[in-house]
Design a protein around this nucleic acid. Structure first.
Lengths: 232, 232
DNA sequence: TAGTCGTCAAGAGCGGTGCTCTCGTTTTAT
DNA sequence: ATAAAACGAGAGCACCGCTCTTGACGACTA
């Protein structure tokens, strides 16, 4: 990784890493809006214009921070899933979701960058999509493997989805090959619910209302597992 | 309302309204980060410092926009609920939630101000809480009235919540007097799920994935109604 | 080895921002 | 009528992202 050939390439990689590190720290303390190229440069003892040798604009720096954030979250989720017994689907679901929440709570500003309101004037480039889907890919895999293991029995919670609704979820269904549309929809719903909770929690909607959020979240996860038909 | 006694008070109220109107329009087109006091002043033909006679800071202007947003959303929701037959709880649930989504989709930047990542450096003052709870108050009332009408039968979706979990939801339960904790928890879950979906939709998470979002959202709402035990 | 070429940090500068202070003027209240 | 309060205008401060130019240093090539 740091096997840059020339000395110039090595110091360039080093400085680039230092910029992103400082930027990430500023992001963690000030939030996305408080991220300032000039402040990063000041902390590095450089002049502000020098930063532009490494990142052509503030948005480009933001983009790498976003990609890094998706990868950090995705990696944590993948590790959590890998640490579970493959056949205990409920346990995998619980641990993966708790990992997502833990990461979000401990990196609120980075999480806001990923799942909060888009940064004004900033348009996420296509580079981010590969990293963005890592977490939901894990959820899809759990659900797919559970279905293949016949560990899913959908509870009857309402009228079955129309074919049109099922067709709309086809793209998400690609993450869970072989899983019927109705299950895909329940999974999508659970996915949005989990992030809805995390959003509320990280963005302060539960302030002065729910204190022991992890415990309530755990209960939410078990109910969601029930809606997906995961046996308990 | 515009019955200010002196001429000065009248023109002050008028100018204050004009400032917020222009600010709201800028917010709608540029987003929260693009809201600029100088730009507002420019559009009014005033000098920027004059704005500070009406709003002591940019954050104060943002605060009134936020309160206005909560009230606009809350009013739309209350009107939608009032237009439904009081005894058709599923219909009320569906219409209220669709109203929330419609408002969010047609006012994305204002919605982001209310339910997105908090504006950096901005701390919502206590003035906002009264307006903020209007939407969830309506949901709580629907659920409470449904329960009192014996229109709720909770489906079995997992282990029952521990007393600790139920206790955590006590504050939210105050919105639904007489409703058992388990139902309050299901309602809280449905509430977060709805806003989780709306967040995903407004913030672009469904781009290139789900096209006919209203239809899928409607299906989500019916499943959520099922989890709350609303008969269908 | 000498020279050229590309990369780099630095500095000045542009237009923008939120915000403060002062200074006359106008309107209100006494 | 006079004192007090409110007001718009203007200059100015410190900050921002970003651009352009300049001079120095390192890395390849003749």
């Amino acid at each position: 990784m740091t096997a840059g050939r020339t000395a110039r390439e090595r110091v360039r990689a080093e400085l680039t890493r230092e910029i992103t590190d400082i930027a990430r720290r500023q992001l963690a303390t000030e939030g996305a809006g408080g991220l300032s190229l000039r402040a990063v440069a000041r902390e590095m003892g450089m002049v502000s214009s020098a930063i532009y040798r490494y990142f052509p604009s503030r948005d480009d720096l933001l983009t790498t921070l976003i990609i890094d954030g998706y990868n950090a979250l995705g990696e944590a989720v993948e590790r959590a899933d890998a640490a579970c017994p493959a056949g205990d689907f409920l346990d995998r679901w619980l641990r993966v979701c708790h990992t997502m929440r833990d990461w979000a709570v401990s990196h609120p500003h980075e999480y806001a960058l990923l799942y909060g309101s888009p940064v004004p004037g900033y348009q996420a480039p296509q580079d981010t999509v590969a990293a963005r889907v890592r977490d939901v890919t894990v959820l899809g895999r759990i659900l797919a493997e559970a279905y293949q293991a016949s560990a899913i029995t959908l509870p009857d919670l309402g009228p079955p989805p129309s074919p049109a609704v099922v067709a709309e979820a086809a793209d998400i269904g690609e993450l869970m090959p072989g899983v019927p549309g109705e299950v895909v929809l329940r999974g999508t719903m659970a996915w949005t619910s989990v992030y809805g909770w995390i959003n509320f929690e990280v963005f302060g909607q539960f302030d002065n209302t729910i204190e022991d959020r992890k415990t309530v979240f755990d209960h939410l996860l078990r109910v969601l597992a029930g809606t997906m038909g995961l046996t308990w």
